[in-house]
């Protein structure tokens, strides 16, 4: 019975490692997307939105990927701890950052950023 299981090319361990690697890669690519957003967006508040892609889905996919490859349950518990802490602390620190920027008098840019015929209405 074990021989048959090892002869099969698609047993659970193979699938697990491959799927975990693919999910980690997806999360890392999402981190790059968030970073591109941080580089492109015009002011602090919009950059916060781009950074929160990294903090939520990028970190979520990477940690889910390595949770699929976890060898035993203690590693799994640690990864879940990291995920919970990361979600709580990233939301709180984004809020603290936005609140500090607003208190310091940094005005957000409001209105459409599209360079077009509607340019005269909102953005300075």
């Amino acid at each position: 019975m074990p021989e048959a299981a090892s002869l099969m090319p698609l047993d659970w361990n193979t699938i697990r490692v491959a799927l975990g690697g693919a999910l980690s890669l997806l999360g890392a690519l999402l981190c790059i997307v968030g970073t591109i957003g941080v580089l492109r967006f015009p002011d602090v508040y919009t950059r916060l939105h781009a950074a929160s892609i990294t903090d939520t889905s990028g970190a979520g996919f990477v940690l889910f990927g390595i949770a699929l490859m976890a060898p035993d349950w203690i590693v799994l518990v640690k990864i879940v701890c990291i995920l919970i802490f990361l979600m709580l602390t990233s939301a709180t620190s984004s809020h603290a950052l936005a609140n500090a920027a607003l208190t310091a008098g940094l005005q957000p840019k409001i209105g459409s950023m599209r360079k077009g015929p509607h340019e005269d209405e909102a953005s300075p």
Binding site: L48, A59, V62, I82, A101
Partner: peptide
């Protein structure tokens, strides 16, 4: 501004956490 730098450093720290986890595996 200062807040851009703090935002970048915070996000950098999040990525460092992911990097450490992946590197361990």
């Amino acid at each position: 501004t200062l807040y851009d730098r703090v935002l970048a450093v915070n996000s950098f720290g999040t990525k460092t956490v992911l990097l450490i986890g992946l590197m361990g595996f």
